[in-house]
Computed example of a mutant assay.
Amino acid sequence: MLSMPRTGSANKIQKRNIALVFICCVLLAACSGNKPKSGKPTKSSEPYNPNDGRYEHDKDFGPSEDIDMSHVPDAVPRYETRTRAGNKNPYTVLGKTYHLIKDESSYRERGYASWYGNKFNGHNTSNGERYDMYAMTGAHKTLPIPSYVRVTNLDNGKSVVVRINDRGPFHQGRIVDLSYAAAQRIGIHKTGTGRVEVEIALPGDAAPIPRRADSKTPKNLEPALPAGTYLQLGAFSQKDSAQQFAASVGSKLTYPVIIKSAAQPKQVHRVRVGPFKDAKSLQDARDQLARIKIFEAHVVYQ
């Protein structure tokens, strides 16, 4: 014969079960609730930023030692098709909205220039090209991409023509961000910033190719480049991959493509174009590479 539980025991069991159910509900509510914020907004809530947190110049740096960039020619203004890449209009950064200039043909402005280097070297610019700190490029907040501008240092009169392919700098008073090569050419690579005038450069209005200060060099000759000057296109761990890439590129250029291999500190095969004897041929090679959508070539010395 089964014995029935006493009323007091039944009440205790019932109360305990109710308590357990309540605790489970609290735990489930805590797990399904909002998670603590990490301090970083989710992608869906992030405002548009063409540079994705870039241009923190206090964390940037140049080459480990100065590299003479006097032989690198100015960018040569030419008509280029402008696409949506890099030309979002308007766009907002750090709470401020920017509108692109509709007609840049008479653009001229004075302010401060800064430069960006190794921190961004090899990373995509706002229009999807790769940033090359040794090429004559720059960033601007409102000029259409690409555009060409002449940047003149107001303290020493030195100037350079650069191709705008990036957005920035988003700092008060700064109107243009230059590559390391361009910054060195106008003498602000050590100070970080400098007072400049920026004006549009149109096709047929480019500054002459820079010449070395050598009174013995005839003015009608192109400036000589250091011996063993090449444009490097890429580096591969597998020699077969390097050979295939070199063959593909070489068939489209009028300049020789070579592979420079090294075993230390690790196996690497570098694909290079050259050598170049003067700045004009180097710029011509860059133009040929641009026509086959290769923009990331940088100057090396072999």
Results as ranks from 00 to 15, higher is better:
15 K>Q: 14
53 G>I: 05
299 V>A: 06
34 N>I: 14
294 I>E: 00
27 L>S: 15
80 E>M: 14
136 M>D: 02
198 V>Q: 04
87 N>T: 05
217 T>L: 13
120 F>E: 12
273 V>K: 12
30 A>R: 15
103 D>C: 02
194 G>Y: 00
20 L>D: 13
225 L>S: 07
277 K>R: 13
97 T>G: 07
274 G>N: 09
274 G>T: 10
179 S>N: 08
213 A>R: 15
227 A>C: 06
239 K>D: 11
26 V>L: 15
12 K>Q: 14
210 P>M: 05
280 K>L: 03
93 V>E: 04
204 G>R: 02
26 V>Y: 09
212 R>F: 00
169 P>G: 05
180 Y>K: 11
172 Q>N: 14
62 G>V: 08
119 K>E: 05
246 A>N: 04
166 D>S: 08
92 T>A: 05
4 M>Q: 09
287 D>R: 15
281 S>R: 13
274 G>S: 10
93 V>G: 07
69 M>G: 00
176 V>I: 15
193 T>D: 02
292 I>C: 06
66 D>V: 08
245 F>H: 12
8 G>H: 14
269 H>Q: 10
88 K>H: 07
107 Y>W: 08
266 K>L: 08
195 R>L: 10
46 E>G: 01
288 Q>H: 01
115 W>N: 04
174 R>V: 04
33 G>C: 11
23 I>W: 11
189 H>F: 03
289 L>K: 05
195 R>W: 02
297 A>Y: 03
134 Y>L: 11
285 A>L: 07
197 E>Q: 14
25 C>S: 15
155 D>T: 07
272 R>M: 14
294 I>A: 01
95 G>W: 02
213 A>P: 02
192 G>R: 04
161 V>K: 07
15 K>V: 13
151 V>D: 10
89 N>I: 06
83 T>L: 07
17 N>C: 14
238 Q>C: 08
234 G>E: 10
142 T>L: 01
253 L>M: 12
126 S>N: 08
254 T>I: 06
91 Y>K: 10
191 T>P: 01
171 H>W: 03
262 A>M: 09
73 P>G: 11
224 A>D: 14
248 S>Q: 14
274 G>F: 04
23 I>G: 05
